[in-house]
Nucleic acid binder design. Structure first.
Lengths: 215, 215
DNA sequence: GTCTATACACTGATAGAC
DNA sequence: GTCTATCAGTGTATAGAC
């Protein structure tokens, strides 16, 4: 289906639609915020990465903080999306295993987002604090109940669900947040496909065996 | 033993010795860099926290980057000091167990330092890259050999030592770097003594059992 | 909607009195 | 060694032409 009228010269090609411009800016912002932090990032640099004049950024996102806020909220959504897998599972081996796979995939595909998230939390979550207190707290409580049920059913050892969750978050996100360190220890090269599979396999093996979900 | 001469009115009380002033500034800097990141930290704020005029900072540390560099290097030393424990052990249960205890203690006592370190690595290690390529790489290689020997001796399962180390780093440092998130999920209160012991115990249980070092 | 030019605030760093 | 006053540079944000 064509635009409202094909006669309009400012249809789709030259004039970017609002949504496209915003997505372009958000992508550039995520990259720059990840590399330089909120304080180190400049609107000028974000504009350069996006290939737009600086003033355009302020047209779509009035302030730097508002732009940052949107970036963080987007990441939080991705962070939560991996949660669904947890619920659909019928046991710890499947549920936690799939959760590790999903979070590792996020660390690989959205490394910049993960870093922005880490930075935000490290600095006391000035923007996302309300989400931590509501959405994240509720999600965590729900998952703790699931794990406790698995323990009661004798499908895994009686470990503290809270510390297990922290270990899952820490370990998977480490591959994004500390990716530079891992890359350096890997001889300067990013992990290849095989190494990522190795990482997933090792993590799953240690944790699932550690909680008594597998032999 | 008194100062060179007790007659000097600017002996010890009023006139801070160089070492003391530097330590005071470094402590304030670590706190501010941890809370705001390198870009977000200001020399003015560091000065305020240290209780000194801004110009004094530039007297002891000519530039902001040099001050930051010293903070990062100090943290790296603490990071490495926990390594010794690893070597003195005669098996994985003792060695890795003690290493977890030591790194958790660092996360608790030097949370700010851990955050500065995390931030530095996340942003591509602009200051500490040479240490990653030399000291850290050598340390890691040495520890991998130890773990491989333990595997050969049948004292633990055949997991990839590299990913085990990453898991150890990630999990222990998470309690410092994501301390704010953990605190929020703990009802807004920092972990108390018992909870820290719980954390250590759960981590050790899962990992040591996960690598087949204990039942 | 897009972009150039610019206002205004802040920051790192220094000069120079004490 | 310590501190006040200040400079030069940079950053966010906006005004206003197109």
């Amino acid at each position: 289906m064509a635009e409202t009228t094909a006669a309009s010269p400012k249809a789709t090609s030259k004039k970017m639609r609002r949504q496209e411009a915003e997505a372009l800016i958000l992508a550039a912002a995520e990259k720059v915020f990840a590399e330089a932090g909120f304080g180190g990032a400049t609107m000028q640099l974000i504009a350069d990465v996006a290939g737009l004049p600086k003033a355009n950024l302020h047209y779509y996102f009035p302030t730097k903080e508002l732009l940052y806020r949107q970036v963080v909220q987007r990441i939080f959504q991705i962070w939560l999306q991996a949660a669904d897998i947890f619920d659909q599972a019928e046991g710890p081996e499947e549920g936690i295993g799939a959760y590790i796979d999903a979070k590792m995939e996020i660390s690989r595909r959205h490394a910049d987002g993960s870093k922005v998230w880490a930075s935000e939390v490290m600095h006391g979550a000035p923007v996302i604090q309300d989400y931590l207190e509501t959405t994240l707290t509720e999600w965590t409580t729900g998952r703790i109940e699931v794990i406790e049920r698995w323990i009661t059913e004798g499908r895994m050892a009686a470990i503290d669900p809270r510390h297990l969750l922290y270990m899952l978050w820490a370990t998977t996100q480490h591959y994004a947040d500390f990716g530079h360190q891992i890359e350096t220890l890997n001889g300067g090269a990013p992990l290849d496909d095989v190494q990522w599979e190795d990482a997933k396999f090792n993590i799953k093996t240690i944790i699932l065996r550690g909680i008594g979900a597998i032999e």
